[in-house]
């Protein structure tokens, strides 16, 4: 049962990470790429770390319990830090005057693939 939950969590994390990468490569400008990076990165990391924490609860001893709590602490830390880092990068890009991609007007620059 525990193994099943761990497998589901890890697979969901990989799936969301795949979506993130796809968005990161396909989206046309910096701001939309940050959408993919900020959301998908946070969720996939948290899911995979939760799965690994559950996996380390397999043999219930004090040491393993502490390890699991530490992994959950890393997950919470990343869940707070990753949107903040996204926000800082976004602010730097906005400050340095990157034009947002406007749809139909300037379609010849930054053609992907």
């Amino acid at each position: 049962m525990l193994d099943f939950i761990v497998i589901v969590l890890l697979s969901a994390g990989i799936l969301f990470f795949f979506g993130t990468i796809n968005g990161l490569l396909r989206f046309p400008d910096f701001y939309t790429r940050m959408h993919a990076a900020g959301k998908g990165d946070t969720l996939s990391t948290v899911l995979i770390l939760l799965g690994l924490a559950l996996y380390s609860f397999h043999h219930p001893s004090v040491q393993d319990l502490l390890t699991g709590y530490k992994i959950i602490f890393i997950a919470v830390l990343i869940a707070i830090a990753s949107p903040t880092a996204t926000h800082a990068l976004m602010d730097a890009g906005y400050e340095s005057g990157i034009k947002p991609w406007g749809g139909e007007t300037d379609s010849e620059e930054e053609v992907d693939k």
């Binding site: 969301f16 796809n22 959301k39 947002p100 991609w101 406007g102 749809g103 379609s107 992907d112």
Partner: peptide, 22 residues
Amino acid sequence: ANFHVIYLSLTPKPIKETLSPH
């Protein structure tokens, strides 16, 4: 939000038609 991102990035249409950022 993640399902939204996956939906936007995996649509077979050209990406410029689905996005309209502002």
